[in-house]
Simulated scan of single mutants.
Amino acid sequence: MFSTSSQRKFWTFNDESELAQLREKHNLEFIAKHGAHVDEYQRYNVFLSPEEERLLLKQYELHLKEFCKRFSPPMPKGVVGTAFHYFKRFYLYNSTMDFHPKEILATCVYLSCKVEEFNVSIGQFVANIKGDRDKASDIILNNELLLMQQLNYHLTIHNPFRPVEGFLIDIKTRCSLANPERLRGGIDEFLEKVFLTDGCLLYAPSQIALAAVLHAASKEQENLDSYVTEMLFRDAGPDKLAILIEAVRKIRSLVKMVESPAKERVRIIDKKLDRCRNEENNPDSEIYKRRMREALDEDDLVYTGQTRMSLDTSGVTQVLSPSAS
């Protein structure tokens, strides 16, 4: 159950300011570690600011969504939701300058396939990625343990999809709403957008699910307020009901504010990242290759060339291997 889960205990935060502080902390830690040689006043000309990191991650979240949508065989919703959780969690405690999001993104999706028991082999998985698929496999498998470590091995995710089904069954049973199935389109649209926000780090899956149902009902010009207050939470005290209503309001507000970052701004940030990223974690850098050679015999190296591969997302080619464009 969510109430006793690691998700509730370790990965559900009080508010957006707490998330912002964590992200800023790890941004500053990276700059302090790697920017000792840079004048303090010039550091944000060389390194990414917290705001730039957030914009970049918002763009890569869109790529994650499109990659999952285009995946073959078709990917269950639970896999997509879990991948978003992993991606967001990872970058609460790591900077994009340390680990490039185009590599972590693919690893998050691959790990979520395993955890959600969506059985695809690494070969089937990288068949969805353009370019050097052997190299793609190597990058993903090399990052898999790192990802699990950074998630503290808290891999079970409670997504809002199951609570949605519970609400729909209850509405069919106890509510006079005609044809509740017509809400599904609005619910799916809402949940797709909610993963582009920090909602899954701030609210319970059941709260997100209820917000989706109420949003879909309002789109159908239906009002479920009496169902919520008189049936669903009839025995809840006024304080608990007020907390729930405020949570639903905030979740819907987050979704309303979803917008794509300006492509030109993201392109500039991406170029900046290529110049300031940690070369020790760059599979195309000599430092990284040397470190791999120290860990493995020369004959065991899978790749050393400069062939690149990319995620086939929404018509925008994003290089997964992190060499500069």
Score class of each variant (00 low, 15 high):
Ile187Pro: 01
Glu181Pro: 06
Glu165Phe: 03
Val164Ala: 04
Ser176Cys: 12
Lys172Gly: 12
Leu141Ser: 12
Lys135Pro: 11
Val164Ile: 15
Pro180Ile: 00
Thr156Trp: 14
Pro163Gln: 07
Phe190Val: 01
Arg184Gly: 00
Val164Cys: 04
Asn142Pro: 08
Asp188Asn: 10
Asn179Ser: 04
Arg174Ala: 11
Asp188Ala: 04
Glu144Ser: 08
Lys193Leu: 06
Leu191Ile: 04
Ile140Pro: 02
Ser137Tyr: 01
Phe190Ala: 00
Asn179Thr: 06
Ile140Gly: 05
Glu192Val: 03
Arg133Tyr: 08
Thr197Pro: 15
Thr173Ala: 14
Phe195Gly: 09
Gly185Ile: 13
Leu145His: 13
Glu192Met: 06
Leu145Tyr: 15
Met148Asn: 08
Thr173Pro: 03
Glu144Gly: 07
Ala136Glu: 06
Asn142Leu: 13
His154Leu: 10
Ile140Leu: 09
Asn143His: 14
Gln150Glu: 15
Pro163Ile: 01
Gly185Trp: 07
Gly185Gln: 11
Ala178Glu: 15
Glu165His: 02
Ala136Trp: 01
Gln150Asp: 12
Tyr153Cys: 01
Ala136Met: 03
Asp134Ser: 13
Val194Gly: 03
Gly185Leu: 11
Leu191Asn: 01
Gly186Arg: 03
Asn142Glu: 15
Phe195Ser: 12
Tyr153Arg: 12
Leu168Phe: 04
Leu191Met: 07
Ser137Lys: 13
Asn143Lys: 14
Arg174Phe: 14
Cys175Val: 05
Lys135Asn: 12
Ser137Cys: 13
Leu141Arg: 11
Leu141Tyr: 10
Leu168Ala: 04
Gly185Val: 14
Phe161Gln: 05
Arg133Ser: 09
Ala178Pro: 08
Phe195Leu: 12
Leu145Ile: 14
Leu151Glu: 06
Asn159Asp: 09
Phe190Cys: 02
